[in-house]
């Protein structure tokens, strides 16, 4: 008896099958790619407008070692990080998470539970939405363009750390998403997934420097320590924008925290996922 399946090969088959499926509905595929890209460019236009009113976001003077001022192109680097994280999450997990809710509602989760493979892996990755990867390309393009405008060439280490923490960010977002989707086992139906996604990404897509004052500080604390979405984009983006040395204590602590938060999110969401399966009732028939 062979031991277990090769997860990489299964994933590649998922990716391949999804691509074939995406291509079957070519028109739909093109429209999806186009509409999500135009959303990006509209956003970009909006921030160009904002930067007509202010040279930078965040202020060095009031916040001491914690803060960082984001000029226009620094902010575009931040924005490109958001794009990369979001497009990866959407391409890999978004469709699967909403499909998961549907499988619970209709009872087709049965088949996933029968397969001799990790159920969470199967549920989380069986469909890949290739059309969402268009924004990954746009994000990389925007990053290269912004770096060029600043005249700043990041070191190899910076790029590697950037990539590592983009992956951490994706993992945090994924954990939130799959945990939320798993609640449909108890709720019978949970359609708030897309809304939730919008609310959360709304908070994660700004530099944490803007969360200050009587309203901002509690928000920053909440979205850092309770639902750690603020570290999702902020941590990798900082690695790209600022040189690695010199570092402030905060610059060191935040990535360490982000890493811990990633592990905790993954462990926590796996726990929720497994708990939810215990309550699965397998609808109809």
């Amino acid at each position: 008896m062979p031991s277990g399946p090769s997860y990489l090969r299964v994933f590649l088959t998922f990716a391949r099958n999804s691509l074939v499926r995406n291509m079957t509905f070519r028109g739909n595929f093109l429209i999806e790619t186009f509409s999500s890209m135009s959303w990006v460019f509209m956003n970009l236009g909006f921030y160009i407008l904002v930067f007509q009113h202010t040279p930078r976001i965040g202020d060095v003077s009031n916040w001491g070692e914690y803060s960082f001022a984001w000029g226009k192109y620094e902010f575009f680097l931040f924005l490109s990080t958001t794009l990369m994280v979001n497009s990866l999450v959407q391409a890999l997990f978004m469709e699967n998470a909403s499909e998961f809710g549907e499988m619970i509602r209709t009872g087709t989760l049965d088949f996933a539970l029968l397969k001799p493979i990790d159920t969470q892996f199967l549920i989380s990755l069986q469909r890949i939405d290739w059309s969402s990867l268009g924004n990954l390309v746009v994000g990389i393009g925007l990053a290269v363009f912004s770096l060029h405008k600043i005249g700043w060439v990041p070191s190899v280490w910076q790029v590697l750390l950037f990539m590592l923490f983009v992956i951490c960010g994706v993992a945090i977002m994924y954990s939130l998403m799959i945990a939320l989707a798993a609640t449909s086992i108890w709720l019978g139906r949970n359609q708030s997934l897309y809304n939730f996604w919008f609310y959360i990404t709304n908070f994660s897509r700004y530099p944490m420097e803007i969360y200050r004052g009587t309203y901002g500080t509690p928000l920053r604390m909440f979205f850092t320590f309770i639902i750690p979405v603020l570290v999702v984009v902020n941590v990798p983006a900082r690695f790209l924008v600022r040189p690695l040395v010199p570092q402030t204590p905060m610059d060191l602590l935040l990535p360490v925290f982000a890493f811990v938060a990633t592990v905790a999110s993954l462990v926590g969401s796996r726990w929720v996922f497994n708990r939810s399966l215990l309550s699965y009732r397998s609808a109809s028939s």
Binding site: P2, S3, G4, P5, S6, R9, V10, T13, F14, N17, K115, P116, I117, L122
Partner: peptide, 8 residues
């Protein structure tokens, strides 16, 4: 084909 891989 997917089954082939999952069941190895």
């Amino acid at each position: 084909r997917l089954h082939q891989q999952i069941y190895r």
